[in-house]
Design a protein around this nucleic acid. Sequence first.
DNA 1: TCATCGGTATCTATATTGGTTACAGTCGGC
DNA 2: GCCGACTGTAACCAATATAGATACCGATGA
Lengths: 155, 155
Amino acid sequence: MRESCRFSMAVHAMTVLAHRAREGHDGPMTSAEMADSINTNPVIVRRLLAALAQAGLVDTRPGNGGGAWLARDASRITLDQVHRAVEPPGGLIAMHDDTNGDCPVGSTIGDVLSDAIGRAEAALHAALEKITLAEIVQATMKHCPAAAAKARRAK
Amino acid sequence: MRESCRFSMAVHAMTVLAHRAREGHDGPMTSAEMADSINTNPVIVRRLLAALAQAGLVDTRPGNGGGAWLARDASRITLDQVHRAVEPPGGLIAMHDDTNGDCPVGSTIGDVLSDAIGRAEAALHAALEKITLAEIVQATMKHCPAAAAKARRAK
DNA sequence: TCATCGGTATCTATATTGGTTACAGTCGGC
DNA sequence: GCCGACTGTAACCAATATAGATACCGATGA
C-alpha cells in the first residue's frame, strides 16, 4: 500500500458508468454494483463518488432506485479531472521541509525544488488532460470482444 | 508523511556536493555535513548516497577523511537520474488490482489504465530529464546572494 | 594504534491507506 | 403511511511504508 489507488479505482468506476450509459441503461448504478467490478467495498466507491460528485463529474441520488451516473458525456471528461477530484492536492512528489536556514543551500532549496517539481507535475497533468474517459471506454471494449459485441447490440 | 521525500532530499544532498565542488573544495563531504543542511539523520543521507552511488551519480570512500562527491559534473546529471536512483520503481500513480475478471470492464481496465498512466508518467520523467543539477545549483545561488558572492570569491 | 568515516541491520513512532461496520437521512413503491 | 433500498458519513481496524535513531562492522589515513 505504497500510494493511493483512488485514481485508478475512480477511473474504473467511471468507466463502468460510461459502459452502462453506452448500453442504453439510463437508470443510476448503485455503489454495490461498481464495487463488485472493482472488487472492493461499496463504502470505498461511495467515498470516491462523493469526491467525483463534488467535482461535478458524476451525479448521485439517494434512496430507493438511487445511485450514480455520469454528469456529462464521457468524451468531455479527462483523466486529469478525475485525478484532481479524488487525489489530495499537494502533488505527487513530496518535499522535505525544516531545512537548515543557516546553510546557503538549505535556505533556498525549498523554493528552487518546488519550482522544478511543479514543472514536472504540470507535464504529467497535461498528459492526463489529453486522455478522455471515452478513450478509456473504447480501449476496454477493444480488449474485450464480448463487451464490444454487447455495445453493438445495444445500438 | 504521505509520500517519500527521498527525491527532494537526494537533490538537496547533491546540490550541497555541487556547491562544494564549485567552491574549490576537492575533498569528500561527510554524511554528517549533508545531514546538517538537510536537517536529518546522517544515516538517512548515507542510505540515499548508497542508492546514488549504485546509480553512478556519486562516489564515496569510507574511512578517515572519507565521504562523498559528485561522480561527474553537475551539468551532466539530470533530476530524472536522481529520481530513478532513489525512488522505488513502479511509478508514482498506483493501480488497484484483483479486479473482477467476470466484468467486461474489470477484466480489461488493468491493461488500459496502466498504458494511460505509463504515458503520463513518461511525460513527468521527460520533464525531469530536462532539468540538470547545475540548473538547480544556479537557482539556489540566485536566491541567495551570500552563496553567490562566496562562489565568486572562490573563482 | 586509533579516531573517523561509510555501510548496514534493527528497532520505533507515526501517518496513511483500504477496508469494515454502523447508522442517520432520503427516496420510491406498495 | 410503511418499508426496503439506497447514499452519505463517522468511527474504527489492520497493514504498510516512511523517517528517524542506535548500534555495530569494516575500511581508511594520520
